[in-house]
């Protein structure tokens, strides 16, 4: 099966049309759990990006070698390997940021989004397409995390990336652990609303 999308289309598809967090609603755990700061979002987003790209490329490279009956175990093994690599690397070189993310780096191994992309895309497509698709999905996740982190950090502690910008804390509630659900829910609703408004206007214009 061939794919007629350009690399740019593949990337934007992951970021907008099939955004893992807001559209597919997969891999929500970190989006709720540790999205309290922009920095956390960037770190975990990069880790996911790394795992997604490397796993996609690996699977796409060895797709002819994988026996169809052990497809899923091979995916799991591939993802687990790259997760271990990024986990060890982060622990060694960014110990402070790693400590903040706690168990969430290791948990990337159980993210549905990565397995799904391997099954639906990487095991059929060429290496370069898989690479761009991986980049798109990873970036989509990263941007989603950063957006949530931005809202929570700005409203919760009046800061961005640890720098105090507001000088006061508008809504301490946003940074409290259980508020993650509310923030994600409200943002999803907000994006849905924008989308319907946009669609309506388009229809009105036409």
């Amino acid at each position: 099966m061939s794919n007629d999308k350009t690399s740019l289309q593949l990337v934007t598809n992951g970021i907008l049309k099939e955004n893992p967090i807001f559209k597919l609603a997969l891999s929500m755990c970190p989006a709720v759990g540790i999205s309290t700061t922009v920095m956390n979002g960037i770190m975990l987003g990069l880790a996911v990006l790394f795992v997604q790209v490397f796993s996609s490329v690996t699977i796409s490279l060895i797709k002819d070698f994988i026996h169809p009956r052990i497809r899923i175990p091979t995916y799991t093994l591939t993802i687990a390997t790259w997760v271990t690599v990024i986990d060890l690397t982060l622990a060694a070189f960014f110990p402070v940021a790693y400590a903040k993310m706690g168990i969430f780096v290791k948990i990337i191994v159980a993210f549905a989004i990565i397995t799904m992309r391997l099954e639906m895309f990487a095991c059929k497509e060429t290496v370069s397409d898989s690479f761009w698709d991986g980049i798109g999905m990873g970036m989509g996740f990263l941007l989603g995390m950063v957006t949530i982190g931005f809202v929570r950090e700005l409203l919760g502690s009046g800061a961005i990336m640890g720098y105090d910008v507001l000088g006061f804390k508008p809504l301490l509630f946003f940074i409290l652990p259980s508020a993650g659900f509310f923030v994600v829910g409200l943002m999803m609703g907000f994006f849905n609303w924008i989308e319907t408004r946009y669609a309506q206007r388009k229809r009105g214009n036409a």
Binding site: A25, F181, F182, V184, G185, L186, M188, G189, F190, N192, W193, T196
Partner: peptide
């Protein structure tokens, strides 16, 4: 309408 489904479930 915009909150139907997942958004309200999150809340």
């Amino acid at each position: 309408a915009s909150f139907k489904g997942l958004p309200i479930a999150f809340i």
